[in-house]
């Protein structure tokens, strides 16, 4: 069969890309528009904002400080003077929970953000390149997974004492960030890499490639948005893990020093006296659970909002 040449009209270079990807501004605007329509996600967002305000400004409205002790008022249950009760040294639990929120939220955010950006980036590239590069990058992940975390932590502890002798805990939180940053992105990298391995063989990715879209664009515009579900689930998981890892790290001597205490620390300290004074566990644990619920529902809302297939 013969086709006259005139039937073929070459496409303008530009038209190819713009047709595949809509301008990125509309993508985010679109996502925000859809997020606003999700009541559960919006309530969660408001809760998180209130929580941050509570953590930052709450302690100024209390007549107690996180370190004030009163041996005559030890282990009191919630009452009108101490809304959350008092701990075993007679300190006001409400102020301690508010102060703890600062540490725990900071740790949670940092963990989620490094997980999100670095883990996705690393895993995405590894999965997309495949072959030898993938083998190398994933062995690095395996190596970091295998070296005992506790050794890292003790190394850091010693290093920070050398670098900042006798700090009042100022460097403490940074050492936690560093310890978490070392390992927290590893599960994310593996999950993203696994997703990219399968997504890159799917029709839409092959199609994008056939029409000559640049590789980074295929990866970041097409493949990663399609893996957003598992990515958000993994990132939100890293928040509670970070909060409790921080408690463990503070317990063995890295991080903020006593009498400052994070939520994780408050709840693990409360475990030994659980039978006698359950309220000491109740409030920090409740704070963690509620925060997590909020982050998760917000995460789910974000996932739906960012899902490229749900766009109308």
């Amino acid at each position: 069969m013969q086709y006259p040449k005139e039937l073929f009209i070459p496409l303008a270079e530009k038209a190819v890309h713009t047709d595949i990807v809509r301008p990125s501004i509309t993508y985010w605007q679109d996502a925000w528009r859809r997020l606003k329509k999700n009541p559960v996600a919006m309530v969660s967002m408001v809760f998180i904002i209130l929580l941050i305000i509570f953590a930052l400004f709450g302690p100024y409205f209390s007549s107690y400080s996180y370190s004030d002790q009163d041996f005559d008022r030890r282990n009191q249950g919630p009452n009108s003077e101490h809304l959350f009760g008092t701990d075993s040294l007679g300190r006001d639990q409400l102020v301690r929970v508010m102060h703890g929120a600062r540490i725990s939220l900071a740790v949670g955010f940092v963990a989620a953000i490094t997980t999100f950006f670095f883990g996705v980036f690393y895993g995405g590239i590894s999965g997309y390149l495949g072959g030898r590069a993938d083998n190398l990058m994933m062995r690095i992940v395996d190596i970091l997974y295998s070296i005992p975390f506790l050794l890292w932590v003790i190394m850091l502890m010693v290093l920070f004492r050398e670098l900042f002798p006798a700090t009042g805990g100022g460097a403490g939180l940074y050492s936690i960030f560093l310890a978490l940053g070392l390992v927290f992105w590893l599960p994310m990298a593996r999950i993203v890499r696994g997703q990219i391995l399968t997504l890159k063989e799917q029709e839409f990715a092959l199609a994008a490639q056939t029409i000559g879209a640049p590789r980074w664009k295929i990866l970041f515009r097409h493949l990663i948005p399609n893996a957003m579900g598992p990515i958000i689930v993994t990132a939100t998981l890293s928040i509670p893990e970070a909060i409790f890892t921080e408690a463990f790290l503070s317990f063995i001597g890295l991080g903020v020093s006593a009498p400052r205490a994070s939520w994780g620390m408050l709840s693990s300290d409360a475990l030994t006296s659980l039978r006698s004074f359950p309220h000491l566990l109740l409030f920090p644990a409740l704070a963690i659970c509620l925060t997590l619920l909020a982050f998760n529902f917000l995460g789910d809302g974000l996932r739906d909002a960012l899902d490229p297939r749900m766009r109308k």
């Binding site: 502890m157 006798a166 009042g168 063995i252 001597g253 006593a258």
Partner: peptide, 8 residues
């Protein structure tokens, strides 16, 4: 200014 340091 008494600080507390906890070590493994």
């Amino acid at each position: 200014n008494v600080t507390l340091t906890n070590q493994e």
